[in-house]
Design a protein around this nucleic acid. Structure first.
Length: 506
RNA sequence: CGGGGUGUAGCUCAGCCCGGCUAGAGCGCACGGUUCGGGACCGUGAGGUCGAAGGUUCAAAUCCUUUCACCCCGACCA
């Protein structure tokens, strides 16, 4: 017997993390690269996860008073030119439509009919939504406008990675307009909290909530807030952003209203977004050396039943028992919807079948065979335990205990992720030498998993930013929870009052 | 857009330096069999205009030129 179990994913996380990530995406059948450079095909298992996340995010967005709407994919070039700093930020990496027809010439199709004004495939929709808002708003009575859009956007990234950075990605973008700065700021913070809640509760990813430093702000924003998660290679992933845009975009788009005093004023706007990147974050937060682990709240299927058929003549009885078990479980709900159960009747080898579901990260596997029928039991495997850890449980108990079992898995993923993250947040690094040591891998050629989050003082000095850049470390955020104490900047040694989270990032 | 690399079967690749029988392996796939509460094994079989175009040669996956695509490292980035 081989005592050291072989893992299903090769390489393991500790040996080559980026490659492990790619292999998990492949093994779990989440997505694949398409023929179009930088664009992915999201396969049913991956898209099912997105749909569940989307449904729950959408619910929270609507509960906080927003309505969904849809705006054009194409944005006239001149719209993007209206907001000066927005221009700087999005001056590059955009898909540009310059022609509006194709002509057949010598058996080829040639673009003709050049557009007077190029159209940009939206990288984000502030400008085109602002154009609509301007028409919709005349009086303070028309405010606030609280709109959300589910859409695809395109940013022509040079280097792409499935889910984490693709040229086209799916997201939601909220856009709101308000009569006062205070109300817009409150909106910004409210949606930041919605993101924290959904990402922690649904995706089971613990996050740090904070404010971006000026250099990291969204182009055109007055303030940018974010939630930051730690991946298992201890790098940070920005999991969502919420921006207070002040009157910058309102001025650019001329969103004006007559206030209670009869004075014309520009509105205050916000925007906020989360994307399919969250799925990348989920993979890197929960995945292990046997593949994906999907939190039950986003799993397209919660339970797979694997019929064990030792002899062909037992097949009918086993299938019948499996379907009866499935039906009984489906009658129960988890997280507000019926539990999703699949009976995998495919005629492939049992070991392969079982491992396939391990790699896909389904929360619960149930095996049923002739002996279980006899004892009216099932064999229960939980994805938050080892792939061979099994429990023999009575039929009725499996059924009635399923909601609690799923919730326990959901919780254990969050707890595991939080424990890992907290173990890798350093609060005791006070000078740049230690800081540098912390973020420098032992093996320069093939860096091992190293570093983590450093929580320390930051002076805000641009000179410090240059030093950070050399280390490839960034300031992820200034956490909303500040200690309020004075100290010295971990990078420059100058007096500093603000706490910052430093990390390498995706 | 800079620097490096790779294009050969569905996938991962060998063969290329030093041109030479009908272009190979492993995995996967199909069929048959033995096993099987299990990622097993044996056998048989299907599957490739060697990224594309041009050139050198009696002869090109292999040498030369051009071109396209993709990957890795930078800069950019949710």
């Amino acid at each position: 017997m081989n005592t050291k179990q072989q893992s299903a994913i090769s390489p393991r996380r500790e040996d080559d993390y980026p490659e492990w990530y790619q292999q998990v995406v492949k093994a779990a059948d989440l997505a694949e690269n398409s023929a179009v450079r930088g664009c992915m095909v999201i396969k049913p298992w991956g898209y099912g996860i997105w749909e569940n996340l989307q449904r729950q995010m959408d619910k929270r967005i609507k509960e906080t008073g927003h309505s969904n709407a849809y705006f054009p994919l194409f944005i006239p070039l001149s719209y993007l030119e209206k907001e000066a700093s927005h221009v700087e930020g999005f001056a590059k990496e955009c898909a540009v439509v310059t022609h509006h027809r194709l002509e057949a010439r010598d058996g080829k199709l040639v673009p003709t009919g050049e557009l007077d004004e190029p159209l940009i495939v939206r990288p984000t929709s502030e400008t085109i939504i602002g154009e609509s808002f301007a028409k919709w708003v005349q009086s303070y009575r028309d405010l606030p406008i609280l709109i959300n859009q589910w859409a695809n956007v395109v940013r022509w990234e040079m280097r792409t990675r499935l889910f984490l950075r693709t040229a086209e990605f799916l997201w939601q973008e909220g856009h709101t307009a308000h009569a006062t700065a205070q109300e817009a700021v409150e909106e910004t913070m409210k949606m930041l909290e919605v993101y924290r809640e959904v990402v922690e509760d649904v995706l089971a990813m613990p996050v740090i909530v904070g404010e971006k430093i000026p250099e990291e702000r969204f182009p055109g924003a007055v303030d940018t807030y974010c939630i930051e998660a730690m991946m298992q290679d201890r790098k940070a992933l920005q999991a969502g952003t919420s921006h207070f845009l002040g009157q910058n975009f309102a001025k650019a788009s001329e969103i004006k209203f007559l206030n209670q005093e009869g004075v014309i004023e520009h509105a205050y706007t916000t925007s906020w977004g989360t994307s399919t990147r969250l799925i990348g974050g989920m993979i890197m937060t929960h995945g292990d050396d046997d593949g994906l682990r999907v939190p039950p709240k986003v799993a397209p299927k919660h339970v797979v039943i694997l019929p064990v058929v030792p002899k062909p003549e037992t097949e009918a009885a086993v299938f019948e028992y499996a379907e009866a078990l499935a039906a009984a479980i489906r009658a129960h709900s988890y997280n507000g919807s019926p539990i999703e159960v699949i009976v995998d009747r495919r005629d492939i080898r049992g070991g392969d079948k079982s491992w396939e579901w391990v790699k896909k990260g389904i929360p619960v596997r149930l095996e049923v065979g002739p002996r279980d029928i006899e004892g009216r039991k099932a064999v229960v495997y939980r994805r938050d335990q080892g792939p061979r850890d099994k429990a023999f449980v009575a039929f009725d108990e499996v059924v009635s205990g399923m909601p609690a079992l799923l919730e326990s898995i959901q919780k254990s993923y969050f707890e595991q992720a939080k424990a890992y993250r907290d173990a890798n947040i350093r609060r005791d690094i006070a000078n740049f030498d230690d800081f540098k040591k912390f973020f420098t891998p032992k093996n320069e050629d093939k860096p091992e998993i190293h570093g983590g989050f450093v929580l320390a003082k930051w002076s805000g000095d641009p000179e410090g930013l240059a030093k950070l850049q050399d280390l490839k470390v960034t300031i992820r955020c200034l956490p909303l929870e500040q200690s309020g104490t004075a100290g010295t900047c971990v990078v420059t040694g100058k007096p500093a009052t603000r706490d910052a989270v430093f990390a390498k990032a995706y």
